[in-house]
Design a protein around this nucleic acid. Structure first.
Length: 787
DNA sequence: GTTTAGGATTTG
C-alpha cells in the first residue's frame, strides 16, 4: 500500500509518527542531489502544487506535484527548498485521490533524477520519482486548509487531533489602513520604495522603505539594525515583505513604522506563480499556509496595480544618455581608484549602444580576470563615497544589482571636436554617485535568485565561447541519414521580450547579440544522432567523441597482457579464472564502503559491464611493473551501473599508488575522479542545424542548452537507448524526413551570436539557447478546427 | 539603554 494516511499527525516530540518506519532519516530538500545517498532517507515537505492525473496508456498514469521543505534553513545550500515529485502508475492514481494541496508529506523509496524543467520552473535541479511498491507516501492531512470535497480516504476526525498536536504561534497582521500611533504590530505589505541598508551616524545600519497593501495606504518604514543580514532582503520594487514587531508612530502628521524589540523581517518575490520562498537569515521563523496565502493574495493584488515605475531595470543595450537605471550584472573585476572611488568592471551579456568610457587603472591593482573575447561587452562603473565600502567587499564573479546607476554622457574622445553636437559617437560613463537618494546603492543577488538565472546562462555562453568555437567546428564527421515523422514545434523558455527577427536580419548584425527567430530546419548534422554525443573538458576545452565498444573492448584486452600483481595498499579479494582479479582499497576493508568500490583487473569490457551491474563503482585497472595503474584514459576510468566516465588525457595527473577510499567522502564520479587525479570529462550533445525562414539560411549549433532542448541528459544518452531514442524522435519531429519544406514544422528559437577566432579569422557563430522541444515526450492529438 | 533617519539625484 504505497500511500498511507497518518492518523495521529506530527506529534509534539517526534517529527515522525508511529506508522512511519523508524529507520527513515529525513534529508532536507536543499541537500538532495543525484549523488547523495538516499537509502533509508525520507523527504518531508508540504504540497504546494498538485498537477492533474495524466493517463499515458491503458491504466497507466503520471502525476506531477511540488513539495516544499518548511523546516530546513535556506542557508543549507543554494538549491531551492521546493522540488518536483513525479509519481508513476498506481501511485499516481492513489495520490491524485488522497492527497491535497497543503498536505504535509513524508516520501520514502524515491529515486533522484535531474529535473528537466528546473531552468524553467526555478525549482530544485533534481526531481524525485516514485513508482512501485518500494515507494511510500505518508500523508498528514492539512490542518489549516478549509475542508475540501470528499476526495479522501481519511475522515475529518483526524483534523482536531492534528490541530491539537501542532504548536502554532498565530500572528495577526494589521492592514496599513488600521494603524494607530504607538502600537507594536505585524504587517504584510508590498515594497514600493526601498533603500539598501546604509550606515547611520549611530550604531546601526538603516533601511528606509515605503510599503503598501490592499488598503492602498502607503506607509514609510525605517528599519534600524546593527546586523546587515537581519535587514530585509529586498531586491526590487514589488517584493513582498512580512514585518514582525514594528512600532507605529506619528511623524510629520503621518503614520510611519519603526523597528521595535524582537523585530524580524521576511521577504518574498512578488511575481504571481513563482515559488513562495521566504528570504531570511533566521533559522527559526514561523511560516504556515496562512503566510503562503497572504503572499499569494498580495501578489495577485500587486499584479493589478501599477507599482513599478516604467524604467528602472534596463539591460546595457537599452541604456540612453542621462538615464538613471537599475542594472543586473556580473562583477568581473574591480580596482581602487582613490579613497572615495572604486572602479567596477561588469557585464550583462548585452552591448551598450553607445561607446563607453574607458578608465585606466594600473593592471596590478585590478582584481579579477576575464577573457579578451568579451571586452566589447564590459562597462566601467565608477562607484563613489559611501558605496566604496560595499564595493570593496565584493568578489569578482558575483551577481549584482546596482540601483540608480547614472549613464553620464561625455564628449567623444574620438571625434576630437568638443563643439560637435552629441550624436551616436557620444561616450557614456557609468557612475554610482554618493548618497542614497532614489535608493542608490548596490547589492549582491544570491545564486538562486530567479532574476539572474537567464543572465547567468547568457554569460556562461560567452564565457564558454572559446570552447564553443574552433573545437566545435572541427568535430563534424558524418554522412547522410533516414528516419520517420511527426508534427511539432519548439518553444522559447527565456524571459526576453524581443520580437522575432528574420534570419537575413540576424546575418546583417554582429556578434554578441540575442535574437528570437522563427525558422524551419533544412538539415542537421550529425545525421547518425549517437555521434552527437561528445566528451568535453572544461579545463583545456578539448572535445572528443565517445569511443565505441569495439575500441574500448580492445583496450581492455590490451590491458590484460601484463598478468603481474598489484602491490601496495590493495587487498586481493578474489582471483577468478584467467587472471581476473578483484581488489578493494585496504583502507576500506571492514568498512561499509568496502564493496562500493572495486578495482578490477584482467576483465574484458563485457565482463566489466556485467560486474558493474552488481557493484556501485568499478575502476578497471591493470598491472604495470608490479603496481596497479589505470588503463589509458581513452578508456572509461569508472563504471557506475550502465554509466561510464572518462578522464581528460591532457588535464589528468593520475595518482593511484596512494591509499584511496578513507578520505573519499562520497563515492561518486566526481570525488573518485578527484581522488585518482583524473580530470573528469563531461558529456554533452552537439548538433549543427541549418535553419531557413524564407529570407535566408543560417547554421546554428545546439550545444550549451542541448540537454534541455531534448529534455535528455547527455550522460543518460550515453548509457541507454531510450534516451537516445528521445533525441531521434525529437529530430524526426522537427525535421521529418521525406517531407517537403512546406510541411516541416516552424520552430520558435532563441539564438545567440558570438565571435570566434577560426584560423586567424574572426567569424560570427550562432547557438540555439533557451529553447525546449514542446511535447517531445507526450503525444497530443492533432488540432482540428471543426465544430 | 533605544540614537541613528524620516525617499526626492552627483557635480567625480
Amino acid at each position: 500500500m504505497p500511500i498511507h494516511v497518518v492518523k495521529d499527525g506530527p506529534g509534539p516530540h517526534t517529527q515522525v509518527p508511529a506508522q512511519v518506519p523508524a529507520h527513515l532519516q529525513t534529508i532536507p530538500i536543499p541537500l538532495i542531489s543525484t549523488t547523495a545517498d538516499t537509502t533509508d532517507r525520507a523527504v518531508k515537505g508540504r504540497v504546494i502544487h498538485k498537477g492533474p492525473l495524466v493517463s499515458i496508456g491503458e491504466d497507466y498514469y503520471v502525476l506531477k506535484t511540488v513539495i516544499q521543505d518548511e523546516d530546513s534553513p535556506q542557508s543549507l545550500s543554494s538549491e531551492p527548498s521546493s522540488i518536483n515529485v513525479i509519481l508513476f502508475g498506481a501511485m499516481a492514481k492513489d495520490y491524485s485521490e488522497s492527497v491535497s494541496q497543503g498536505d504535509l508529506l513524508l516520501l520514502a523509496g524515491f529515486t533522484v533524477a535531474k529535473s528537466p524543467t528546473s531552468h524553467k520552473d526555478k525549482l530544485h535541479v533534481c526531481n524525485l520519482q516514485m513508482a512501485g511498491d518500494d515507494s511510500s507516501v505518508y500523508v498528514y492531512p492539512s490542518s489549516t486548509l478549509s475542508p475540501r470535497a470528499s476526495v479522501s480516504k481519511r475522515s475529518s476526525t483526524f483534523r482536531p487531533e492534528v490541530t491539537k498536536a501542532a504548536k502554532v504561534v498565530k500572528y495577526s497582521y494589521v492592514p496599513l489602513s488600521h494603524l494607530k500611533p504607538g502600537v507594536v504590530v505585524n504587517i504584510y505589505a508590498v515594497v514600493c520604495f526601498f533603500k539598501q541598508p546604509f550606515r547611520t551616524k549611530g550604531t546601526d545600519y538603516c533601511s528606509t522603505l515605503k510599503i503598501t497593501d490592499q488598503s492602498n495606504n502607503k506607509v514609510g518604514c525605517t528599519i534600524f539594525c546593527d546586523k546587515l543580514e537581519e535587514h530585509p532582503k529586498i531586491f526590487k520594487i514589488g517584493d513582498i515583505i512580512r514585518l514582525h514587531r514594528v512600532k507605529s508612530q506619528l511623524f510629520n502628521g503621518a503614520i510611519s513604522l519603526l523597528t521595535s524589540h524582537g523585530f524580524s523581517a521576511v521577504t518574498f518575490d512578488g511575481t504571481v506563480g513563482s515559488p513562495v520562498v521566504p528570504r531570511t537569515c533566521s533559522k527559526s521563523f514561523s511560516f504556515s499556509e496562512d503566510d503562503r496565502q497572504a503572499v499569494e493574495a498580495l501578489r495577485v493584488w500587486v499584479s493589478t496595480q501599477s507599482l513599478v515605475p516604467a524604467e528602472p531595470s534596463l539591460p546595457l543595450s537599452s541604456v540612453q544618455p542621462k538615464a538613471y537605471f537599475d542594472l543586473t550584472c556580473q562583477l568581473l573585476a574591480k580596482a581602487p581608484v582613490d579613497s572615495s572611488c572604486t572602479l567596477m568592471k561588469v557585464w550583462d551579456g548585452t552591448k551598450c549602444s553607445y561607446p563607453t568610457l574607458d578608465v585606466f587603472v594600473e593592471p596590478s591593482t585590478l582584481e579579477g580576470r576575464f577573457s579578451k573575447n568579451i571586452n566589447n561587452l564590459i562597462v566601467n562603473i565608477l562607484v563613489y563615497d559611501n558605496h566604496v565600502e560595499v564595493a570593496q567587499q565584493l568578489k569578482p564573479g558575483t551577481y549584482l544589482r546596482i540601483y540608480n546607476l547614472h549613464a553620464v554622457p561625455g564628449a567623444s574622445r574620438l571625434s576630437g571636436n568638443d563643439s560637435e553636437p552629441s550624436g551616436p559617437t557620444e561616450h557614456l560613463g557609468f557612475h554610482l554617485h554618493g548618497g542614497t537618494s532614489y535608493g542608490r546603492g548596490l547589492r549582491v543577488l544570491p545564486d538562486d535568485s530567479p532574476d539572474i538565472q537567464d543572465l547567468r546562462r547568457v554569460l556562461e555562453t560567452f564565457s564558454n565561447s572559446d570552447l564553443s568555437d574552433s573545437s566545435l567546428l572541427e568535430v563534424w564527421n558524418t554522412p547522410p541519414l533516414d528516419t520517420a515523422p511527426v508534427e511539432t514545434a519548439t518553444e522559447r523558455i527565456c524571459d526576453h521580450t524581443m520580437d522575432p527577427v528574420t534570419l537575413a536580419d540576424v546575418k546583417t548584425r554582429g556578434p554578441s547579440q540575442m535574437y528570437h527567430v522563427r525558422a524551419q530546419i533544412n538539415s542537421y548534422l550529425p545525421q547518425k544522432l549517437h555521434q552527437s554525443l561528445k566528451l568535453y573538458c572544461d579545463k583545456c576545452k578539448s572535445i572528443r567523441d565517445v569511443p565505441d565498444d569495439g575500441t574500448v573492448g580492445n583496450m581492455f584486452l590490451e590491458a590484460q597482457k601484463d598478468g603481474g600483481s598489484c602491490d601496495g595498499s590493495w587487498t586481493l579479494e578474489l582471483r577468478l579464472p584467467r587472471a581476473l582479479s578483484l581488489y578493494m582499497s585496504s583502507q576500506l576493508i571492514g568498512s561499509s564502503k568496502a564493496k562500493e568500490l572495486i578495482f578490477l583487473k584482467g576483465a574484458t569490457l563485457e565482463e566489466t559491464c556485467r560486474i558493474a551491474t552488481a557493484y556501485n563503482n568499478i575502476i578497471p585497472v591493470m598491472s604495470s611493473q608490479g603496481s596497479m595503474s589505470l588503463l589509458d584514459l581513452s578508456a572509461p576510468f569508472l563504471f557506475r551501473g550502465t554509466k561510464r566516465y572518462y578522464g581528460c588525457r591532457q588535464c589528468s595527473n593520475v595518482k593511484l599508488g596512494e591509499p584511496l577510499g578513507e578520505d573519499v567522502e562520497m563515492l561518486d564520479e566526481k570525488s573518485l575522479a578527484e581522488a585518482l587525479g583524473v580530470h573528469l570529462l563531461q558529456y554533452g550533445l552537439l548538433l549543427k542545424l541549418e535553419l531557413q525562414d524564407g529570407t535566408d539560411c543560417l547554421e546554428a549549433l545546439l550545444w550549451r542548452d542541448s540537454e534541455s532542448f531534448f529534455q535528455v541528459s547527455a550522460v543518460d544518452a550515453a548509457a541507454n537507448q531510450e534516451a537516445q531514442d528521445v533525441i531521434q524522435e525529437t529530430m524526426d519531429r522537427l525535421c521529418p524526413p521525406g517531407r517537403s519544406l512546406a510541411e516541416r514544422p516552424w520552430l520558435d528559437l532563441c539564438l545567440t551570436s558570438y565571435s570566434v577566432e577560426d584560423d586567424g579569422q574572426r567569424r560570427t557563430c550562432y547557438q540555439i539557447i533557451h529553447t525546449d522541444t514542446r511535447g517531445a515526450n507526450t503525444h497530443t492529438a492533432p488540432h482540428t478546427h471543426t465544430s
